[in-house]
Design a protein around this nucleic acid. Structure first.
Lengths: 91, 91, 91, 91
DNA sequence: CTGCCATTTTACCGGC
DNA sequence: GCCGGTAAAATGGCAG
């Protein structure tokens, strides 16, 4: 956490590990993961906002997943599902 | 998909799907899921019983998760150790 | 974890905790959880079997969830979904 | 759900649903999800970069998870301690 | 009605 | 490169 490693190789190269470099990678990744987490929280807020406006979040999620699906895939899946439902008499 | 269904099995094979077979899978799975559900209810009952005996269910849950975690953690520790040994060329 | 507590109160009543009783609850629960896990594995096997027979497991899961839904709920949900899709021009 | 929508917005309100509003929610969420996805890709790139520099990505992942776990574990330990203190009447 | 727990879904990682 | 299993996140249901 602090700048306590200030020797020439910083004491960071231990047994062949380039400590500073490794630490840099780690920290860059952690930074990005924090951003991801923040985005997830933003999404959650929007859904709550939608809920407060009277929308059904469950349905919103369904819409989102439908929109993510390729149309082709969606149709195909619906067709197969219908087929199976008929096959077991659920229609 | 097509009109290739020319069987005379009473309509169970629809769209080329073996309805009876599918139904059988579905029902076997549903049966097992019912058993799972029954077990969950049993567990809930035990926890209520424990609660009635004066135990704090939250503590019981914590103990359960700790016990589950122990093996996992031990393996994790061993794995980490191996990784570090490799990292510093001790392998 | 082991049977190392064998003194008269077993060392189990510590600060008012009825150790043996607690342990019994814990173990009963763990036993049931193992059974649940075994059932989950059985279900997975059946799904693999179905897959090997040419069925699409994804669709089987969908069918299972549909069958779990009350008809009323299913219809209501489908209606709301349709409504929303129209609302955003996805129809 | 009720007939409280009395605007004249060209048909976006279908079935009482404020289509534009819903669409706006959906699109805001989708935008954020795209950003999340981009971040995931960035992370993957960094890991590949690290790999190209000679690091073992597996170790990096392990380090990341350890660092993430540290706070969690500390909180967990504190929580357990509190639970036990309550359990033996030390609260 | 809020928070908790369980389930389900999703993303990740390693093996084939 | 795909598939399977595993681990994390999100969602839904339930109890208090």
């Amino acid at each position: 956490m602090s700048d306590e490693n200030q020797n020439s190789d910083g004491g960071n190269n231990v047994g062949g590990i380039a400590g500073d470099h490794l630490r840099s990678f780690i920290e860059r990744i952690e930074r990005l993961e924090e951003e991801k987490k923040a985005l997830s929280e933003d999404i959650k807020e929007i859904k709550n906002e939608a809920k407060g406006t009277g929308f059904d979040v469950k349905i919103i999620n369904k819409l989102l997943s439908l929109r993510k699906m390729e149309d082709h895939d969606r149709l195909e899946q619906e067709e197969i599902l219908e087929l199976y439902k008929r096959a077991i008499g659920m229609e």
